[in-house]
Amino acid sequence: TADRVFLTEAQLQEAEHWMRMDVMRRTGLARDNLFIRRIWTRVAVGAAAAVAMAFGIWLYRDMTRPNTPYQANTLLIKNDIPPGKNAATITLDNGQVVTLNSNKTAVVIESSQLQYDDGTAIKQESMRQDAPDVLSKMYTVETPRGGQYQIVLSDGTKAWLNAASSIRFPRSFAGAKNRRIEISGEVYLEVSKDEAHPFIVRSATQEIKVLGTHFNVNDYADGSPARTTLLEGLVQVSSSQTGSINLEYRTLKPGQQAVISDQKIAVRNANLSGVVAWKDGDFRFENENVTEIMKQIARWYDVEIIYKDNVNDVKLNAAIARNRKLSQVLNMMEKTGEVKFKLEGRKIIVTK
């Protein structure tokens, strides 16, 4: 994967300006301003940010700061930290905790056995057969900071767990009126369709009703608002604390996001590629506050963030693969000239 770069909003606008000039020069239409404006209006909205990201290093080095080459922070490289990896545990209904293989990507849940998605069996103690009902046979999969994993539930529903996340679910949904699970952190779900048995997701601040769809839930206990983003199908989202009754639901359409803060829910359009970038192996931000970016970096690289300066007003545009070492991510952020970093053990010191 080619390196991509972090850009400030001003740098992104300047990059777009130079692309407009280049389009006019190459097409010979520089004097036909009205025609160019019409073309650019159609092209820029959908493509400018994507093109800026795809050619990020070229834009940054050769356009935005042609006379000030960036020198990599060698101290970051010296104290480098590798990226996260596949890592998780599964707690069975008998209390046994199994550490999942980091060389595998997914675990498949079946009523009588556990196996990885390549068919390899998972060693475990004898499974409980005396549980009186399906809801008492609960499993929990948890990822640590710096870990991710995939799960295929007994009904075929697929779940991707981001770092520091969990999902609790029954060994089998057989005999249950509704398919209920509980999550924390960030989980992307592709739910198997079964209109007779609605799929219900619970987190600390919300409940989501599903018939069959693709959606992402982000609900970390880090002070950020809970967000549910719909890619396909139809979901209903309620704002509630666990155990609440008389829930009031808001319906989402594909491309919309429910944002929950202080038990109030707002629906807005979402940047889908940015929301699910983590599942596809990328960090991707558009005009994102540095403090929010650093929360994701902290979870994925299992580091602590310490702020020496106030960076609440710094927003960046970014795209970079999550399999990069920490130094590569931080060096790219430093290229903007907006923030600086110092790495001390597993602590990142952030300054302006």
Score class of each variant (00 low, 15 high):
219 D>V: 06
220 Y>E: 02
221 A>W: 08
222 D>A: 11
223 G>Y: 14
223 G>C: 12
225 P>W: 10
226 A>E: 00
226 A>R: 10
226 A>P: 01
227 R>P: 00
227 R>S: 03
227 R>N: 02
228 T>A: 00
228 T>Y: 03
230 L>T: 05
230 L>Q: 04
232 E>L: 10
232 E>S: 14
232 E>D: 12
233 G>N: 10
233 G>L: 05
233 G>H: 11
233 G>Y: 09
234 L>V: 10
235 V>M: 01
237 V>N: 09
237 V>S: 10
237 V>M: 09
240 S>N: 15
240 S>D: 04
240 S>Q: 15
241 Q>I: 10
242 T>R: 15
242 T>P: 14
243 G>K: 13
243 G>A: 13
244 S>T: 05
244 S>Q: 08
244 S>G: 04
244 S>R: 09
246 N>F: 05
246 N>A: 12
247 L>C: 07
247 L>G: 08
248 E>H: 15
248 E>D: 12
248 E>T: 14
248 E>Q: 15
249 Y>A: 06
249 Y>L: 07
250 R>D: 03
250 R>P: 01
251 T>M: 12
252 L>W: 09
252 L>C: 05
252 L>T: 04
253 K>A: 11
253 K>H: 14
254 P>R: 00
255 G>R: 03
256 Q>M: 07
256 Q>V: 04
256 Q>F: 02
257 Q>H: 07
258 A>W: 07
259 V>S: 12
259 V>H: 12
259 V>P: 05
259 V>A: 07
259 V>D: 03
261 S>M: 12
261 S>Q: 12
261 S>V: 09
262 D>R: 13
264 K>R: 15
265 I>F: 04
266 A>P: 00
266 A>L: 11
266 A>I: 08
267 V>T: 11
267 V>D: 04
268 R>M: 10
268 R>H: 13
269 N>A: 08
270 A>V: 11
272 L>G: 01
272 L>N: 05
272 L>A: 05
272 L>P: 01
274 G>V: 07
274 G>R: 09
274 G>F: 07
275 V>K: 12
275 V>E: 14
276 V>S: 07
276 V>A: 04
277 A>M: 01
277 A>E: 02
278 W>P: 11
279 K>G: 06
279 K>E: 13
280 D>F: 00
281 G>E: 10
282 D>S: 06
284 R>N: 07
284 R>V: 00
284 R>M: 07
285 F>R: 02
285 F>L: 01
286 E>F: 11
286 E>Q: 11
286 E>Y: 11
286 E>C: 01
287 N>M: 04
287 N>P: 13
289 N>E: 13
289 N>D: 11
290 V>N: 02
290 V>D: 01
290 V>M: 00
290 V>K: 03
290 V>S: 02
290 V>F: 05
291 T>D: 14
291 T>H: 14
291 T>W: 12
292 E>L: 13
292 E>A: 15
292 E>Q: 15
293 I>A: 00
293 I>W: 07
293 I>H: 07
293 I>D: 06
293 I>N: 08
294 M>F: 14
296 Q>P: 09
297 I>S: 00
297 I>M: 02
297 I>L: 04
299 R>Q: 00
301 Y>F: 11
301 Y>C: 03
302 D>G: 01
302 D>F: 08
302 D>M: 00
304 E>H: 11
304 E>V: 11
305 I>T: 03
305 I>N: 04
305 I>E: 09
305 I>H: 02
306 I>F: 09
309 D>A: 06
310 N>S: 08
311 V>T: 04
311 V>G: 02
